Simulated assay, not measured.
Amino acid sequence: MTNVTALAPRKSMTQPERKLLQVLAQELPTMPAGPTVLAVLLQLVASWMGSPSPLGFEDFAKGWVQQGNVKGAAAEQLLRDVLGMNTTPKGDA
């Protein structure tokens, strides 16, 4: 009898996702709420990497933010802006 363990899904980011994180890592420390947002991003990436979910990083990040995992209004607002979650509906413009 052998023990078989299912492999976790392989995680990989797209080139635009990697570039976004690189730019944020350079720009956030200079912003007023930047260090807080950088800490939240680190939690987000760690959550994604540790999750068995097959979702890509962007989809996982949007769900993670919507579930209320971001502590702090400024950090949440900035992440929603970065992820394109604060777009105005067409009828409200």
Rank of each mutant, 00 (worst) to 15 (best):
K11S: 10
M1A: 07
F57I: 06
E58S: 14
L83R: 09
G84N: 04
Q67D: 14
P16W: 05
K71M: 05
N3C: 07
L55M: 14
Q15R: 15
D59E: 15
P52F: 01
M85C: 07
A46R: 15
G84K: 05
K62W: 03
D59F: 12
A33G: 14
V40L: 05
E76F: 03
V37A: 09
L7W: 04
T30V: 04
A6R: 07
G63N: 06
A61E: 02
V37H: 02
Q26M: 13
Q26Y: 12
L24P: 11
R18Y: 12
Q22W: 06
N86F: 10
Q26D: 14
L7D: 15
P54Y: 00
D59Y: 12
P29D: 06
P32C: 08
G34C: 03
V23E: 08
P89H: 12
T14G: 11
G50Y: 02
L21G: 05
L83Q: 07
P52S: 09
A74T: 10
T87W: 10
W48Q: 08
P89V: 10
R80Y: 02
Q77D: 06
L78H: 08
A73Y: 09
P16G: 09
N69F: 00
L78I: 08
G72I: 01
K71N: 03
A6H: 07
L44F: 08
D59N: 12
A8L: 14
A39W: 01
L28P: 03
A75E: 01
L78E: 00
V70K: 11
A8T: 06
M1R: 00
L44R: 00
K11R: 10
M85R: 02
A75P: 02
T87N: 08
A93K: 15
L20D: 06
S12H: 15
Q22N: 15
T5C: 07
F60T: 04
L78T: 14
M49C: 12
G72K: 04
S12N: 10
A6W: 07
T5I: 15
G50L: 08
L41M: 04
V37L: 05
L44W: 11
P32E: 08
R18I: 09
V70Y: 04
D59S: 15
G63K: 01
D92G: 00
Q77C: 12
K62L: 09
A39F: 02
E27S: 13
P29V: 00
K11G: 08
Q67K: 13
V23H: 13
M85W: 04
T36R: 09
P9L: 05
G34N: 08
A93R: 15
G68D: 05
S51G: 12
A61Q: 06
D81E: 11
A6M: 14
S12E: 11
G56I: 02
T36W: 04
N69C: 01
A75R: 01
S53Y: 02
G72W: 06
A61I: 10
S53L: 00
T30M: 13
G91E: 14
M31H: 14
P54T: 01
T88N: 10
M1G: 13
Q15V: 12
P35L: 03
A73G: 07
M49L: 15
G68K: 03
L21H: 08
P54V: 01
M49I: 12
